[in-house]
């Protein structure tokens, strides 16, 4: 009995480690390949030298500064775009008049790849923070809109009928029936929007910036500074994974009834 229990525990730990074996193995292989000289370190620097570069950039204050500025742009853009997308999706989901007024326009705009809007955004908003944040916001708006709208309109009509018939107030109907029913789809939108947030930010920061991770990366690219390029790629991977992890855990907490 005791034995099977501890065996199960070991098994579950192994299962949790399993997803990490391939990345870790690849990194080790990569380090060896550079050390032995299979690949030229001026094109592909070794993981350890990338790490050392990261540490020195961190100490010089450059890395914390750029990460925090990127995070600021990302979060504010996400809050504005995601918030707006949610509100629009909500309004169109519950009101037929709003839907008739907005939906066609939004569907049309949605099909424009948002990065194609860069010149327009620069023209209208310039090259300052507003432009970069707006680009991120535009990127986050559509996935949030689509998912909120879709989530709200596809809540089981039987449940809504039940709520109405049981005399729920409009607010109660929304907070206890419609919103929780739409929540899984909305959270999918949040996850997707978080992904778009990072990819848009990289591009926005290459347009004209003198700070941020995207700037660090393009600047390094100009001078073939491969260590910094790889560092930026890794930072993006970590930030992306981290935000995905937050979204996923949020799902687990909010949707614990599933």
């Amino acid at each position: 009995m005791e034995e099977t229990k501890s065996k199960n525990k070991i098994n579950s730990i192994l299962m949790q480690l399993l997803p990490w074996t391939i990345p870790v193995a690849l990194i080790i292989l990569w380090q060896i390949a550079v050390d032995v000289g299979w690949i030229t370190s001026s094109f592909i620097p070794s993981p350890l030298s990338v790490l050392a570069n990261g540490v020195s950039l961190w100490k010089s204050g450059e890395l914390p500064k750029n990460i925090s500025i990127s995070l600021y742009r990302a979060l504010v853009g996400f809050a504005i775009g995601g918030g707006l997308g949610f509100i629009l999706g909500f309004l169109n989901g519950v009101s037929k008049v709003m839907r008739a007024l907005f939906d066609t326009t939004i569907q049309m705009l949605r099909n424009i790849p948002h990065l194609a809007l860069i010149p327009v955004v620069i023209l209208v908003l310039g090259i300052g923070e507003t432009a970069k944040i707006s680009l991120v916001a535009i990127g986050c708006l559509f996935p949030m809109y689509i998912n909120t709208y879709h989530g709200i309109t596809s809540v089981d009509p039987h449940l809504i009928e039940m709520g109405k018939s049981y005399g729920l107030s409009k607010y109660k109907l929304f907070s206890k029936v419609i919103f929780p029913g739409a929540l899984p789809t909305i959270l999918m939108g949040v996850r997707y929007a978080l992904g778009v947030m990072w990819t848009t930010l990289i591009v926005a920061e290459t347009v004209s910036a003198d700070s941020g991770i995207g700037y660090m990366s393009t600047n390094a690219q100009q001078f073939m500074n491969m260590k910094t390029i790889f560092l930026c790629i890794i930072i993006y991977a970590i930030l992306g994974k981290l935000s995905d992890f937050i979204a996923k855990t949020l799902e687990n907490i909010l949707l614990d009834w599933r």
Binding site: I67, S68, I69, S70, L71, Y72, A74, L75
Partner: peptide
């Protein structure tokens, strides 16, 4: 908090 720090720098 980190984002706020970033905002200050901009």
């Amino acid at each position: 908090l980190v984002a706020f720090f970033g905002w200050k720098q901009t």
